[in-house]
């Protein structure tokens, strides 16, 4: 049955895309406002946070790891950025310079946070799940402490300028969507075209084989966590101007949404198989579900999480089936 075989193989890679198209069609049927420029650019801008974080997560998961700390890390980095920017007002004249400094600091903190996760998993040999559960708690309470239980707000003089990063657009596409696209392209090349990407795949597939193939397993794994940290930082950089504030509630459940996006996209949770474009589509699907529920009265918006959850489980179930058929 060669034809059938080919079709199923196809379904496995195109499945997420088909689901995305289906959702778009549903969206169009549900409400005319769905296709408005305002709504579409809103969807793209919103999905870019989770999407960028999820691209980092694709590397971590492909290499057989997991990072639960990303949501708390995003909140922590937001807080740090706001504190840095607020405290630089008066010492540095140019608001743009202040913002740039905060962006650089943000990337540095993200990389450092990833490095800590990476070193704890590889050198201290603690399971990634436990390490990142721990650091998640640490960052979450740090941001609450920094905000003194309330909210950290960015000074208006900077906030007004910085908000352009979230609300502005180029060629009709909001800036966050451009950043998302850029990160996705870099991620795709990194995962599929470089030795580093190949090594991630090998480690996630079988760590011992990777070790016996002269791969610096610890180094590569640590690098995936650093990459994840930097993706979180990039997401934070475009997230802070949206609200201009950070609190203990910032970035709640981002880790689960990011992992969900990765899984919907077809990456295998136990590692050894990763798809960047799948992840991008996964992030879009998650945002679309929320958006469509907002636009319709048929299902309560409060059930957003339930619908997302069902979609994740269904996606994994379908992929499992495709794997099995491929094996045969």
């Amino acid at each position: 049955m060669p034809e059938k075989f080919g079709f199923k193989l196809d379904l496995k890679t195109t499945g997420p895309f088909l689901a995305l198209i289906t959702l778009i069609i549903i969206g169009m049927l549900v409400n005319d406002a769905f296709l408005s420029t305002g709504n579409l650019s809103n969807i793209l801008a919103r999905s870019s946070f989770i999407g960028i974080v999820a691209i980092g997560a694709t590397f971590v998961i492909t290499a057989g790891g997991i990072d639960l700390s990303v949501g708390a890390m995003a909140a922590f980095i937001s807080g740090c950025m706001i504190i840095i920017m607020n405290s630089l007002i008066g010492t540095i004249e140019s608001s743009v310079a202040i913002i740039l400094l905060a962006i650089i600091a943000s990337a540095g903190i993200g990389a450092l946070a990833g490095l800590i996760n990476g070193i704890l998993t590889t050198k201290a040999k603690i399971e990634a799940f436990i390490v990142t559960l721990g650091t998640m708690g640490v960052y979450r309470s740090l941001i609450t402490y920094m905000a003194d239980g309330g909210t950290l707000s960015l000074d208006f003089s900077i906030g007004d300028i910085y908000s352009e990063v979230y609300y502005g657009d180029l060629l009709g596409l909001p800036y966050p969507a451009w950043v998302f696209l850029g990160v996705a392209i870099i991620g795709y090349v990194l995962l599929n075209k470089t030795v580093f990407g190949r090594h991630c795949l090998a480690i996630g597939s079988n760590e011992k084989v990777a070790l016996y193939s002269a791969i610096h397993v610890d180094r590569v794994k640590t690098m995936t966590y650093m990459l994840q940290g930097m993706c979180v930082a990039i997401a934070t950089i475009i997230y802070v101007p949206r609200l201009g504030s950070a609190s203990g509630q910032t970035g709640i459940l981002w880790e689960l949404e990011a992992i969900a996006a990765v899984i919907i996209g077809g990456t295998v949770l136990r590692g050894g198989y990763g798809r960047i474009w799948g992840t991008v589509v996964g992030a879009l699907i998650l945002t679309l579900i929320g958006n469509i529920l907002n636009l319709t009265d048929a299902i309560s918006n409060y059930l957003n999480g339930a619908v997302q959850g069902i979609i994740v489980i269904a996606a994994v179930y379908l992929q499992r089936g495709a794997w099995r058929r491929n094996k045969q």
Binding site: H199, L201, N206, V209, A210, Y212
Partner: peptide, 29 residues
Amino acid sequence: AYLTKDRKASGLLLNLNLVFNFSLLSLSA
């Protein structure tokens, strides 16, 4: 070079294609 005795546990990535397996050791040299 060392050719491991346990080709399944430490020699080959059983779920990946042959080309990836073939080049895994030499890619980063």
